[in-house]
Write a protein that binds this DNA or RNA. Structure first.
Lengths: 210, 210, 210, 210
DNA sequence: CATGAATGAGGGTTCATTCAT
DNA sequence: TATGAATGAACCCTCATTCAT
């Protein structure tokens, strides 16, 4: 687990910092969706956030900080939404499938946000980038563990890892390849198919296929 | 098939255009790898290309043209390299597997280029973007056809499409998630695993698994 | 009467806008006099104005805006200076002559400014150009009215219009043909002569000619 | 009379020089009409002239040379067209009136060219500018002489000079204030009126007015 | 003589960041 | 804390001019 990376602020009041940053993040996501990180100016972000450019810079140091806050926040959100299913007590296979399904639904709802993450993370400086990458790795390893709990007898650890990555990317794929997939499939259809291949990969036969 | 989109040049000599643009593309890929499209200046591209900024603008109209040229060239290269395996006469299943393997190898060799494509295409204006997206769709549909030739009896057309997309993305994934995958697997291992899941998804049993 | 055309500014403080724009206008007139609009760079204008190029662009959108501001300001100044004589209560003929004389004096004092107007208005885009042209038309029509008040019995409306235009241009001519006129005549001589022809044209006989 | 100012050419063949320069001048006038001198590029001039940019520079040294050639050519044309009426043997008053009328007609036909002259001469360097100004002075003095031949008894030399300048400018005014004048008057009406005021200024009573 | 590819200084404009109020 | 005017480095792009062919 990575240490919480700190973005420095001139302001002391932590509640205010939290509030203002939430405004910034919401505003930035909105703008990044439309125009991407580089095409969005700090002035626009300040305006959309509802305060002045001067105030903006009281809560961050550089424009890149904003990108980092956005990326961090997106991951945090995905993570927290996933927690619901992760903490449920269920038979392993069932739980895995529920988590995967939920994950796909989240990816659907947060398509735009994930797209931002996907395309802009590279603009982060190394330290921040590694922090975000670490978060992804954490999520994948969570998935890995979940799969292992289903005790797939004939599937090696290496296989599990690749399969976890596949699932992870297939979730994002629904959003970032929407022009290829969403025109022919509903989300439910897409999930059903990917879940089916997942089971085949894991050699799980639950009788849903004859 | 999309029409060949033309980038306008002031220079008339077509051979020269080709030569200079190749210089530009090579230079740009080099730079985009390091710093991304937005952080790279046209002056840097000119310098790296070996000519002056004025000359650069004799062969393109805007900076975006360069990005388009780069994207187009990357796809063209992938396409032409894939053609070798596509034109071979082989039994369907064998051919599919060979194409997929070759595709993964190409994705390995062209990791950086594909990464550029993935992260910067969004910066293209609509017309150019659609042209590039169309090229991707063409490649996927090529894969789709190939899969259908293997006559997977119990796999629907919809399944084939999703599976083709999966394979396509898994190839790119080797490059753009290298920090997650390449630390634990060699390319050959990765290919072997993905091919295995592909077969399972397609319900192909060739006896390579007991 | 044309609506006041607005030049957009990033800055909100209207007093500051006024002040800074006055600086810009003064600086620009100085430079345009010497080198013309096209040969003057925005950087030079900023420097002469006493602020940075960045600040310059806080108060305008494009270089053309500056030209517009200059043209507008010159007309405004001519107009306001003329108002003094226009608002005086006098016998019509006397008033006309006083206005014309004042107009010639203003044209003398503002030679350079009027020259700019004269040579650069064409560089304005249509909307701005029309606005400025309208201002000229307004001034001429003011002169026309004034002439009509003198009740020139045997002079048609058409004649009045042409004569008003003649006077208008003769005023500017003192400046833009200085190399032809100012070497042989003083301003007073020039005015005396033009006023004399004006009276002849209008068939006014006030006994000043025997 | 000013000495013929020379524009230097690399090419020796004088006939060719003449031919090529005529092409350039025609092309330039066309382009300057539309976009003005500064907005027109040398490339555009070369293209419109029907030869390459390289060839263009075989016949001139700088872009300003082209402007000079254009200005010179316009004056030459006005001059030669006026010669017809100047060389006719006629009674002085009649001749003056015929020349003035012809001058107004020429100004009408060459509106655009004269406009160029008016707005761009300032862009010439001093030497060239003075040469062109001298040509104007020559034309005005020609008019002055013509007026003096009519023996206007009660009109001083100073008056004659100003009146000549007035007529000269009124001719140009038809073109450069077309938006003020041409909407309300035909050329013939305009000429009739200006001729009428000219006579009044010169105290010529030919009985055409009661 | 004619061509047109090459050059690079310089132009207009933007925008992240600072700092006095 | 909040504001927003000020800054200037840096960007993309143009175009007059040159010169090898």
């Amino acid at each position: 687990m990575a240490e919480k990376k700190k973005v420095i602020s001139t302001v002391k009041d932590t509640d205010l910092i939290k509030k203002r940053r939430e405004q910034m993040i919401r505003a930035s996501i909105e703008l990044f969706k439309q125009k991407g990180f580089h095409q969005t100016t700090t002035r626009e972000i300040a305006k959309q956030s509802g305060f002045s450019i001067g105030t903006l810079y009281e809560y961050i140091r550089t424009k890149e900080d904003i990108l980092f806050l956005v990326c961090d926040s997106v991951y945090e959100l995905v993570h927290s939404r996933l927690a619901v299913a992760l903490n449920r007590e269920e038979p392993p296979v069932e739980k895995l499938m529920n988590v995967v399904e939920l994950y796909f639904h989240i990816m659907d709802e947060m398509q735009e946000e994930v797209l931002i993450l996907y395309q802009e993370v590279k603009s982060l400086k190394n330290e921040s980038k590694n922090y975000i990458i670490q978060k992804e790795l954490d999520m994948v390893s969570m998935l890995t563990k979940l799969i292992k709990c289903t005790n797939p007898q004939k599937v090696s650890d290496g296989d599990v890892e690749i399969i976890a990555n596949n699932v992870f990317v297939q979730g994002q794929m629904w959003g970032f390849r929407r022009w290829a997939i969403q025109r022919n499939f509903t989300l439910e259809q897409y999930i059903a198919k990917q879940v089916k291949y997942l089971k085949r990969a894991l050699l799980i036969n639950d009788g849903s296929e004859s």
